[in-house]
Amino acid sequence: MAFTDQRFDVNLSILFTELPLLERPAAAAAAGFTAVELWWPWIETPTPPQTELDALKRALDDAGTQLVGLNFYAGRLPGPDRGALSEPGEESDRFRANIDVVADFAASTGCKALNALYGNRVEGTDPAVQDALALENLVLAARAADRVGAVLLVEALNKPESPLYPLVSAPAAIDVVDKVNQLSGLGNAKFLLDLYHLSMNGEDLGEVIDTYADKTGHVQIADNPGRGAPGTGSLPLADLLGRLAKAGYQGWVGLEYKPGDRPSAEAFDWLPN
């Protein structure tokens, strides 16, 4: 398997998790990476103390790693939650409280891609009510991202692992992207194309790439089955990334896979030397 002409970053919320958060950027740098991404690191709060934000920025700077992707507050992730912005009440309020915190941190670190997970369906709540709330919150997030020169990402997840999450296909996520851009007038909402999630949904990955490459703002990969490193499953990831490049995608490719039974530092032997 050959991977050439790709810009890979490491997701520090799924790799190097055997280390404390502030030690992970240096570990990624030691493994040869100059760029990293993160889910929202403070699961319990959308508004961590400024001292903790500053400490994470210092860890990134000291390691010489660029933060290229960051999630907005998404509830208990990892865990049962898949975002907060479409859930009425306290969780939506927490998402809104998080918007400027994320945007300001992105500005301080130079991060240009901010991912807003849609959130699960809530039993007893009209899906139309959730969808209206989601668009309202996504427009707010798009405006905050635009303020700091970033794109807002909308991600499709996979139904087997996220059965209550409504965006479980590329067209469903693209529909939300288009609606946010129409309502905001900014055009900075983009698709987060995760090849693992889309493969779990049984989508034609080549067709997705050809159809939506121009609306894609970030890419993430893991092999399937198993969500392991490339080469541990059956996905032709090198070919798919080559197809993405030919379709015009020149952005980062996030490594969002599980290292398996080995230390994270040993989970990159598939990369070209």
Rank of each mutant, 00 (worst) to 15 (best):
M1D: 12
Q6Y: 02
R7P: 00
F8I: 07
V10M: 02
E18S: 13
L19A: 10
L21A: 13
R24H: 10
A28N: 02
A29T: 09
A31Y: 12
F33K: 08
F33E: 09
F33R: 07
A35W: 00
W40E: 06
P41G: 06
T45W: 04
T45D: 07
P46Y: 11
P46I: 06
P46G: 06
T47F: 00
T51F: 00
L53G: 07
D54L: 15
A55D: 15
A55G: 13
L56C: 11
K57Q: 15
A59F: 08
L60E: 03
A63T: 13
L67G: 04
N71H: 12
F72T: 07
A74I: 11
G75I: 09
G75H: 09
L77D: 03
P80C: 00
S86Y: 05
P88V: 05
P88T: 09
P88E: 07
P88N: 11
E90C: 02
E91N: 14
S92D: 13
D93S: 14
R94Q: 13
N98K: 00
V101P: 06
V101C: 02
V102A: 15
G110A: 07
A113G: 01
A116G: 06
L117K: 03
Y118D: 03
G119C: 12
G119T: 12
N120K: 05
T125E: 14
D126A: 14
P127K: 12
A128V: 05
A128I: 01
V129I: 15
A132E: 15
A134D: 04
V139T: 06
A141G: 01
A141K: 02
A142H: 04
R143Q: 15
A144N: 10
R147C: 01
L152N: 08
V154S: 12
L157C: 02
N158E: 09
N158T: 10
P160E: 11
Y165N: 08
P171L: 02
A172F: 02
D175C: 00
V176Y: 01
K179S: 09
K179L: 11
N181C: 04
S184N: 01
S184T: 01
G187I: 05
N188A: 00
F191M: 09
L193H: 14
D194V: 03
L195N: 04
Y196R: 06
D204Y: 04
L205S: 08
E207W: 10
I209E: 06
I209A: 08
D210C: 00
T216R: 07
H218F: 14
H218N: 14
I221T: 05
A222R: 07
A222G: 11
N224I: 03
P225I: 10
P225A: 12
G226E: 05
P230Q: 07
G231R: 09
G233D: 06
L237W: 05
A238T: 10
A238E: 13
D239H: 13
L240M: 14
L241W: 11
A247G: 01
G248H: 07
G248P: 04
L255I: 06
R262H: 13
P263T: 09
F268L: 10
D269H: 14
D269V: 13
D269M: 02
W270L: 11
